[in-house]
Design a protein around this nucleic acid. Structure first.
Length: 260
DNA sequence: ATGACTCGTATTACGAGA
């Protein structure tokens, strides 16, 4: 079973690339972030015409997450628990039936948090506390799960080409990294790091200053697995080749392979 | 020499991303 995550940076701007990649990858469930679309404007029919199931949780202009899958979800939940006043569309989860039993899969778009020193940074940290609470609750329920998405956190120095460039950035603040570690310390497994120690493994390259040709990347798109699932991991790959396409997203897909 | 971004929203400028 393949579970993928991809921040596509605008579903309408990326529709051709999305269709091409879905066709090639054939994920069972693909978690999308930054669809930048309200639900009504999501290019649903073009994707459904190729046989995919779609669930969206969008908003006007920015943010927004979606789940694209081969089979329909048994149930869907929109939004991250813990703050009724939060209007940003950043979390969407579904329950699927598999040969190993039910599995819960979430598409998450964790707040960027820049600039540090504005209210955006504490919003990021509060959002991470809410994510940790959700993970605790899901662990207690004992249904295997994948928390997949754009975490906007560089966990370790080796997750950036030039870690020193990110010292003042919300993605690499001690508080952001500590909150990510607290999540890991619940017993979750970072699927990529559990399966490779390969250097210069990145998922994002900025559009500016030739970051892609210089391979000046960072690893911020992660898949965190519940403990039962980590034993069933076959591997993780990064579909880096799509960054070289015409009109690419600045992120590339991460694809997790789980034993059926 | 040395890579000056891209998307969406709303009017060719701005917010947001990272």
């Amino acid at each position: 079973m393949l579970v993928a995550t991809w921040n596509i940076n605008g579903v309408k701007a990326r529709l051709d690339a999305l269709l091409q990649w879905l066709d090639e990858c054939q994920p069972d469930v693909a978690c999308l972030q930054e669809i930048k679309s309200v639900d009504e404007a999501f290019p649903r029919s073009e994707i459904e015409a190729r046989g995919w199931q779609i669930e969206t949780h969008g908003q006007k202009g920015f943010n927004g997450v979606a789940l694209v899958s081969k089979t329909p979800a048994l149930s869907i939940e929109r939004g991250l628990a813990g703050d009724e006043t939060d209007e940003q569309a950043r979390f969407l989860s579904g329950l699927w039936s598999t040969s190993r039993g039910p599995i819960r899969i979430a598409s998450l778009y964790l707040p960027n948090g820049n600039p540090v020193g504005t209210d955006k940074f504490p919003y990021k940290l509060r959002w991470m506390e809410r994510l940790e609470s959700t993970a605790r609750q899901w662990l207690a329920e004992e249904t295997p799960f994948v928390l997949a998405g754009d975490y906007n956190v560089i966990p370790q120095p080796e997750d950036a080409k030039n870690a020193a460039d990110w010292l003042g950035d919300a993605l690499y603040q001690p508080e952001s990294r500590a909150a990510y570690r607290r999540l890991m310390n619940l017993g979750l497994v970072d699927a990529l790091r559990a399966t490779t120690d390969r250097a210069q493994t990145y998922t994002f390259w900025d559009y500016q200053a030739g970051a892609w040709p210089k391979n000046n990347g960072i690893r911020i798109d992660h898949m965190l697995l519940s403990p039962e699932l980590s034993a069933a991991m076959k591997g993780v790959r990064i579909d880096k080749y799509v960054r070289a396409w015409e009109k690419p997203s600045d992120h590339v897909p991460v694809v997790l392979n789980i034993e059926d």
